[in-house]
Design a protein around this nucleic acid. Structure first.
Lengths: 65, 65
DNA sequence: TCCATATGACAAGCCTGCTTTACAGTCGCT
DNA sequence: AGCGACTGTAAAGCAGGCTTGTCATATGGA
């Protein structure tokens, strides 16, 4: 899955570790999401979107079908 | 997690099995989400929201923190 | 009454999300 | 060269999402 996490994180000048800490997950989890190794859970996706003052649909790009 | 899946599904007159079939998941999965036994994956949540022509944030209610 | 449809729930099994620990590579600075 | 911060990835382990199969219950119609 593609996401805007990396771009948005860098835009606010945070490291993967700092973002993870802000959301209560490990830096490896942020890294895995950014590198597309796995998709976040629904709860984490919503938290990430909220953190960037956006929506799940805007931050995560999920194929039509 | 609370969701509007049941209400929205009934509003369009579908059974759990029919909704599951429309989205490519089993009826047990729809049932588990409606009864709150577990949260859907991000991908399934987005598909459900799209199906109801809505957004993840509107269909699924996730606590602030 | 009998049958079909719908729902709720459980179990086993598989795959994935997330954790901690750990190692390696890059970069900038001194 | 050495150091610190950042990133990428891997392994082991646990929790949770989803499947198929199955059983039980309720409801409405012929």
């Amino acid at each position: 899955m593609e996401s805007e996490i990396r771009v948005r994180r860098q835009a606010v000048g945070l490291s993967q570790a700092a973002l993870g800490a802000a959301l209560g997950v490990s830096r490896q989890t942020i890294n895995a999401i950014e590198t597309g190794r796995y998709d976040p859970s629904l709860v984490l996706a919503v938290r990430l979107a909220r953190y960037f003052e956006s929506t799940v649909e805007e931050v995560f790009h999920i194929a039509e079908k």
